[in-house]
């Protein structure tokens, strides 16, 4: 019991002592955490920015969806570590080396969610919008996208957790935020405090991000609460059902590359 406490105290002590180093802005835990947030959030944002137009195109031209989805899936099967190294000649040691592959990975979750979200807009709602004189673009912006939002956000939650976890792998090419604590400080020097701190902070970041997205969903889609109406209920259950399945897939894949690395 006391050894466990001593160990925990040691880890905490290391974290406090190494939180940041005045005068050396690139050393310590805090700069790694900020780097992690920067890489993860940029990847998710770019992924979403790609997924929405691609999803719209897939809904508009149905024939696009199967090849595009297959393409994204194949890309996802490429180990992240390999993609990071493939990026090196083009992007060097800039953030883009991590962001480009990670953003592409998010598509495997975000694209189907955008497409499913748009497709589940009830036909009578779409027709009512046409009949009232919404043009195609206006209908998309002010009716179809808002109605698809709960499912898009559900996808965003899964993609965010996956991305936050996968950023660590980029430490192999000198990026990777908190992953660098695990790899450089911990693994190489056989020292467990940085590893524990790195894991705890990655998990905490994932939880906080998820909480922020739940909050965003509450604010953006107040109409989609799980009360009464069967149709909305079903849509939400579908989204909820998609989430854990997605998480398992991501969990295994995201877990694999560090093991390989």
């Amino acid at each position: 019991m006391s050894t466990t406490l001593d160990w925990a105290e040691g880890v905490l002590g290391w974290a406090v002592a190494n939180w940041s180093h005045p005068g050396e802005p690139d050393r310590g835990v805090l700069p790694r955490l900020l780097e992690h947030i920067r890489l993860a959030y940029s990847s998710i944002a770019i992924g979403l920015a790609l997924a929405i137009p691609l999803g719209l195109a897939c809904v508009r031209w149905r024939i696009l969806y199967p090849p595009l989805l297959t393409g994204v899936n194949v890309l996802y099967a490429v180990p992240s570590i390999a993609l990071f190294f493939l990026m090196l000649p083009y992007t060097g040691f800039s953030d883009w080396t991590a962001i480009v592959p990670l953003a592409l990975y998010t598509l495997v979750i975000l694209l189907p969610n955008v497409v499913d979200g748009l497709r589940q807009v009830p036909d009578h709602v779409r027709q009512a919008a046409v009949a009232m004189g919404f043009g195609p673009l206006r209908r998309l912006i002010s009716v179809e996208t808002p109605v698809a939002l709960p499912i898009i956000i559900a996808g965003l939650r899964v993609a965010s957790v996956a991305t936050i976890s996968m950023v660590s792998v980029a430490s192999l090419v000198g990026l990777g935020g908190l992953g660098r604590l695990i790899l450089s400080d911990g693994f190489r020097r056989q020292f467990d405090a940085p590893i524990i701190v790195g894991i705890v902070l990655v998990v905490a970041l994932a939880l906080v991000t998820d909480a922020l997205l739940v909050l965003a969903q509450r604010l953006l889609t107040p109409w989609a609460r799980r009360d009464r109406r069967p149709r909305t209920g079903r849509a939400l259950r579908r989204a909820a059902a998609a989430a854990p399945t997605g998480a398992e897939t991501i969990g295994s894949t995201a877990g694999a590359p560090p093991g390989k690395g």
């Binding site: 009830p122 009578h124 709602v125 027709q127 009512a128 919008a129 009949a131 009232m132 009716v143 808002p146 109605v147 939002l149 889609t221 109409w223 989609a224 149709r231 909305t232």
Partner: peptide, 11 residues
């Protein structure tokens, strides 16, 4: 225009 099932905007 009034449609079957009302077609109200859920949002």
């Amino acid at each position: 225009y009034v449609i079957q099932q009302a077609g109200l905007f859920p949002h």
